[in-house]
Structure formats: structure tokens, C-alpha cells
């Protein structure tokens, strides 16, 4: 007995309604598959491109302990990219195809990585604010409807929260150091605060794909909800650290039980999204060069494996 399309779709909707997981071999609407490929690939690309801004400081880390922490963190990002590309492959797209789409600019990655890292404090700020924002985005995704993605996210979230604490701890240590170090931390926070808020995407009213993704259980909270959660979470941390955020409108609103805050520069956001951010071309060129420089190695490995099989 074969099921009709209608019955298949009903089974899918029931699974979603029960908050159960859709697995790779289950029937799914084409739009759901496409949306997931786009989102999971974008997430994987973000991990891989995200290795660059922080990786740039491995060779200049100010202590051997910090060097080890940073190297291990950037290595974790490669690992996250690997799980996420694998989750994406269960949807029928290969890592090679996804890499090509990244290099050709046909798939995106998080805009935050198009901002430069200009001091060692940025390593801490990225851990605290950027990984912190990523966690706010990603924790709800542990319950996302597609099984392989949700399971990858559980592991990734644990490691990300570890990275966030390491970043915060670096900033804490620097704040106990010299005046120059404290100024470095504040300057870095000033640069990254607004881009971190932009990581949640445009305001809900201008986020075209959000409603369908929410209905399919791919996305669990709106951009604005998550942004608010991030601001509320970050304020007490900033106070404990002894830094301020560069927003004159930032204050506690007793009535709402949340912090009020100003509006990010959405024009800058669109510039960066459209490819004209401070580092977009540099990041893609780096990825493209590394990928192309490695082509002969991948070909050699494939040829060697084939010889071994036939031997």
C-alpha cells in the first residue's frame, strides 16, 4: 500500500504538531527541505568563516595558556562545521556542493564575521557577546523539528556556552590588569555591541521567512524576542565586568520587566549582508584560496583510496 501525498503531508503535520522530530528518511515538503538546507548550511558556513577572525590571533596570543585556549576554540569551530555539514548531507546536499555555494556567494554566513578583529580583547568579546548571541539563537534550535540538526545543536550549544565563559573570563582577567588593557576591553565592546545585536536578524516586521519557519518548527522564537533576551542577559554581565554598552537608550523598564534599548543601524546591516561589510571579500577570498590550494590534496586522497580498493 502506498500513501498518497495528502496522507504523507498529514503525517508530517502531525509530527510537527506533536513537537516530534522529522528524520532524514521521513517524507517532508520540498519547501521544508529547502529551508533547512539553507539554514543548516548557513550555520555551517558561519562556523567555518568564523574560524578566520579569531584564528588570526592564534599566532599573536599574549600567553601560552591563551594560545592553547584559542587554538582549541577555533578547532572546535571546525568540528561544529563538520557536524553541521554532515547534518546537511542527510538532506541530500554534499559538503563539496555547499562549499562551492559559499565560495560563489550563493549561500550566506553570519554577518558578524565580516567585522575585523583588531585587538586581543576582541577574542574575549567575540566569546562573550558573539558566542552569547549565537547561544541565544541556538538553544531553541536544540528543539528544532529536524532530528539531525537538533541533535547537532545540543552538542554545539554545550561547547558554545563553554566558549562564552572562556571569552568572558579573558575579559575579566584583562579588566584586573592595566589601564591600557581595560581601555582595550571597552573599545572592543564598543565595536562589537551593535553588530552582536544585528546577529538576530532584521526586526520581525521585516523578516520575510520567519513565519513559515516558525510554523514548521524549524525556528522557535522571533528575531525580536531573542534580541530582547540577549540584551536582558548581557546587561548584568556588563555590570559585573565593569564595561558599558554604547547605547544611550539602554535602561531597565520596570513595566515591561525588560531592558529598553536603541535601534541598530539597519542600513549598515544591509550593507554587510549585501557583501560590502569591512571583511566580506577578504573572508570569502581566504576560504576560496584555502579550498583551491587543497584541491590537489583531496584529489590525491581520492586517487589513493581508489588504488587501495582495487589492490
Amino acid at each position: 500500500m502506498t500513501l498518497t501525498d495528502h496522507e504523507l503531508e498529514q503525517a508530517f503535520e502531525t509530527t510537527i504538531a506533536h513537537n516530534d522530530r522529522i528524520e532524514p528518511r521521513d517524507w517532508m515538503p520540498e519547501g521544508y527541505r529547502k529551508t533547512l538546507v539553507r539554514q543548516v548550511a548557513q550555520h555551517a558556513h558561519s562556523e567555518i568563516i568564523g574560524m578566520q577572525p579569531e584564528g588570526a590571533w592564534i599566532t599573536r596570543a599574549p600567553s601560552l595558556r591563551r594560545k592553547a585556549i584559542l587554538l582549541a576554540k577555533v578547532q572546535d569551530e571546525a568540528g561544529h562545521g563538520l557536524y553541521l555539514y554532515s547534518a546537511c548531507e542527510t538532506l541530500g546536499v554534499s559538503r563539496g556542493e555547499l562549499t562551492d555555494m559559499l565560495i560563489q556567494g550563493r549561500q550566506k554566513y553570519s554577518s558578524i564575521f565580516n567585522y575585523p578583529t583588531l585587538s586581543y580583547a576582541d577574542v574575549g568579546t567575540i566569546g562573550w557577546l558573539v558566542d552569547g548571541a549565537a547561544i541565544c539563537n541556538q538553544v531553541p534550535l536544540c528543539r528544532t523539528s529536524f532530528g539531525p540538526y537538533g541533535r547537532a545543536m545540543i552538542r554545539i550549544c554545550k561547547e558554545e556556552s563553554f566558549h562564552q565563559r572562556q571569552g568572558y573570563e579573558l575579559l575579566m582577567t584583562m579588566m584586573r590588569g592595566t589601564d591600557e588593557q581595560r581601555a582595550m576591553v571597552q573599545e572592543s565592546v564598543d565595536r562589537f555591541w551593535w553588530p552582536a545585536l544585528m546577529m538576530f536578524g532584521p526586526p520581525d516586521a521585516e523578516s520575510p521567512n520567519s513565519a513559515q519557519s516558525m510554523a514548521w518548527g524549524i525556528k522557535r522564537n522571533t528575531n525580536d524576542e531573542l534580541r530582547q533576551r540577549f540584551v536582558d542577559m548581557s546587561m548584568p554581565q556588563a555590570e559585573a565586568l565593569g564595561v558599558t554598552f554604547p547605547d544611550p537608550d539602554l535602561r531597565w523598564n520596570e513595566e515591561r520587566g525588560h531592558y529598553d534599548f536603541g535601534t541598530p543601524d539597519w542600513d549598515e546591516f544591509m550593507q554587510v549582508v549585501k557583501g560590502d561589510g569591512p571583511c566580506n571579500r577578504q573572508r570569502i577570498a581566504h576560504r576560496k584560496r584555502a579550498h583551491e590550494d587543497g584541491a590537489w590534496v583531496r584529489e590525491a586522497a581520492t586517487a589513493f583510496a581508489a588504488k587501495e580498493l582495487s589492490a
Binding site: K67, A68, A72, V74, L82, A290, G294, R298
Partner: peptide, 26 residues
Amino acid sequence: VSEWCSNAPDLEEDIALANIALDLLG
């Protein structure tokens, strides 16, 4: 070896080289 970070031919090699760099650093 750490200069290879984000420059390796594939993710598996990036991870392996980072491991080697970390061991030597330790």
C-alpha cells in the same frame, strides 16, 4: 603548524593539524 588553522585542504586536516599544534604547545 598553527598557521595552518583555517587553511588546511579539508576540515578533517584542519582539526588534525590543530591537535598537533596543541600537543606541541603543551
